[in-house]
Design a protein around this nucleic acid. Sequence first.
DNA 1: TCTAGTCTACTTGTATACTAGTGTATCTAT
DNA 2: ATAGATACACTAGTATACAAGTAGACTAGA
Lengths: 224, 224
Amino acid sequence: MHILERIPQESARDFAFRVLKENIVSLELKPGTLISENEMAMELGVSRTPVREAIIDLSKVSIIETVPQRGSFVAYIDPKMVEESRFLRKVLDKAVIEVACDIASKEYIDALEENVHLQEFYLEKSDTEKIFTLDNLFHELIYSAAQKDIIYDMRSTMMLHFDRVRTLSVEAVKDLKIVNDHRSMLEAIKSHDKEAAVALVEKHLNRYSFDEDRIREEFPEYFK
Amino acid sequence: MHILERIPQESARDFAFRVLKENIVSLELKPGTLISENEMAMELGVSRTPVREAIIDLSKVSIIETVPQRGSFVAYIDPKMVEESRFLRKVLDKAVIEVACDIASKEYIDALEENVHLQEFYLEKSDTEKIFTLDNLFHELIYSAAQKDIIYDMRSTMMLHFDRVRTLSVEAVKDLKIVNDHRSMLEAIKSHDKEAAVALVEKHLNRYSFDEDRIREEFPEYFK
DNA sequence: TCTAGTCTACTTGTATACTAGTGTATCTAT
DNA sequence: ATAGATACACTAGTATACAAGTAGACTAGA
């Protein structure tokens, strides 16, 4: 497992949660791996309690499976769960951007404006890493603008299923297209054009295809 | 706090979670109340650990607010959160019933059929309690039929915000209408009529109105 | 009367100890 | 050699102990 740096003042629980999440999505922790609370506590330099609490959180969305008295395992890739997370994202993103079109305040519009501007800036420099971070922030901002913050949290945790298969997809989505999508979405929000916004989200999400058959063939050991 | 009976083989954590949930929704635990992990552990006859884990869960959706080194408090009714939960339900219920129209298996159709039949049975007997339980099960069955079980869990926890103001609403929704709605939804699912199903959900949810001003006037101490 | 300080009684966060169950490897008996 | 019993090493669930911080009551002094 790849141990991240602990952020100052970060609680042990949040730390453990963050490390677990990263390692699962990046497939550093392979599906089927046993996560020992004890071992992980040692590695992180914290006690079992916060590690355990983080594991419980992730069990909630079935990305970790806990069998009493046996262990906690990284869940195998389950197409049903991938579909469930993709479904959740599509449904929520569309509904939320509509609300954002209605009620986004100038404050958030400005934040989105800056965000997209930076995306375009780093697109110029081909800094995919930065764009990835800004991408996530962009969507979070929309949820905030629509005052749907708790829902965003749920979406994030659930998206782990999808993020993890995205790690396996060779076919990288072109940054150019993504950034363009975001620019268009922002313009739609600014002009309160709900219909356009929803259509853009639909198109945006369709860029992330999930070729289950290919991935299953290439990484059969990751599937149940 | 009203202590429920512990179900055999129920884990201490699930038990604590269930008791907390019930007491918060029923307003037995009033908004603003301090929930002491220690005290609750004593009352339930378990240790702090499972109680704490239950509290963490509920903090996730902001129905409990935990301030480090100060305490965990039952959150005041926050119209923003009520709206967020109502929004989540509306968006998900509509999207999920569409899926159910597409893929509900005979097994689930049968289960729904039995469920609605029982609702009609208890409607005859005016057993509101039973209908309430069957009502919840009905919606859970639809989510299961659409293979969206994790999403249903999220919805449930988030709905606590809404369920709690529903407790305060005097205007009881008529059982007759509810049961009729359910019957119609089932028929829509059986005939794969997505449009009708979505329209029914919309109508169904509109029955649950939330007169914030009135409730706020009547119970000002429950609001922040 | 007011203010500064201190003490107490609480809280959560974290660490550790104990319990009970599971799977495996090993040993024993046939 | 094989089947069954058994010991062991691990697990998660729960209980308890300790650390660190907060709020409020109380006291002493001006």
